[in-house]
Write a protein that binds this DNA or RNA. Sequence first.
DNA 1: ACCTGAACACCGTTCAAGT
DNA 2: ACCTGAACACCGTTCAAGT
Lengths: 208, 208
Amino acid sequence: MVPMTPRRSDALSRERIVEAAVRILDTKGEGGLTLRAVTAHLSTGRGAIYHHVTNKEELLAAAADDVIRAVVTGDSVRDLALGIFDAIDVHPWLGAQLARDPSQPAVLRIFKSVGVGLRTHGLAGTALSDAGAALVNYVLGAAAQHAAGARQAAGESAREDYLEALAAEWAGSDDDPLVQEAAALLPGHDDRAQFLAGVDIFLRGISG
Amino acid sequence: MVPMTPRRSDALSRERIVEAAVRILDTKGEGGLTLRAVTAHLSTGRGAIYHHVTNKEELLAAAADDVIRAVVTGDSVRDLALGIFDAIDVHPWLGAQLARDPSQPAVLRIFKSVGVGLRTHGLAGTALSDAGAALVNYVLGAAAQHAAGARQAAGESAREDYLEALAAEWAGSDDDPLVQEAAALLPGHDDRAQFLAGVDIFLRGISG
DNA sequence: ACCTGAACACCGTTCAAGT
DNA sequence: ACCTGAACACCGTTCAAGT
């Protein structure tokens, strides 16, 4: 009898390609994800990838959805938002990727979960869609900024010094007391705590 | 007498380079901004750019700041937010650029204006910096999503069809009434009106 | 059907050589 | 000091040729 097609465990598949992409993105960052790096990692030929994935853009979207899928399981909107923030903290490339296209699978998945979560807050109709869009946009914006900041945190203390110097420049260059205090916005905050404070402002604005 | 250095009006300068970059970005989009396109537009040699700008990243940041500078003049936070949204609507490449690096000049400029604006709402200390960060992140996130959506609006009706089909798929695949209504989040909204609704949710959350 | 790897048409950046 | 343009070291994607 002829056996079923053997399906060698190392056969190329969309799943294995996406898996490799996530690993490379986590290891070398966004700039490290080249088609050449992927094919080297899978020890296959250059063009083999294109039999399973249409192009690099789709590969990035698939990698993002792979990570987000595991995260949108939280019950409350607050937990959901925090889960997304933490995922982007662990995978900084996610921040830029989610901001790139609102109709990619990962963003739609987030939209769905937020929508469901907000329904339990008693929202419906326009109020629901306005609040849902606002919360999703806040989460994606905050996470993108945090990820971009963390990415260049090679010289973390250097960045802190830079922001402090800038705050001093603002305070010094303008007598307006408003500017003086606005300068305090800049340096040294716990991004995660500040992110949660923002979520709470939104939730207060929704129920208010 | 020897005249002052003549300063031919077409002499290369950082200002003219940034100006050309903005024009190219507006015309051909983010993918159209190549160093080759810039040098062709200014009819100069490849490497001449590098005497006035350190690299492409800095050129993009300078282009973004050039546009934002003209926008952060509004008085109320609401007007300021709307001005940024409209600027990104006109210059879609701005959406991705502002999300790329929180310590670039344009983002810091926005932070300063929002900080000053929120002080007039009576905020100070941690409440001010939390609210400032939240508002900036929301504005940048919403604008980035809007710009990304608008960028692929070549087939605008195609995208609308896609979202409607997806909403139908959500509604059909899940009996949960929460999902049913969450599907209504997806298609057909006025992004600008929804953006403003989000700003108002946020302002309500601050004063609440 | 799936895979290979050379070839193509691009990039950003550098640098010796000119003015 | 500023500019030129060829050269370098990369990209993503395609495609004839193999299995």
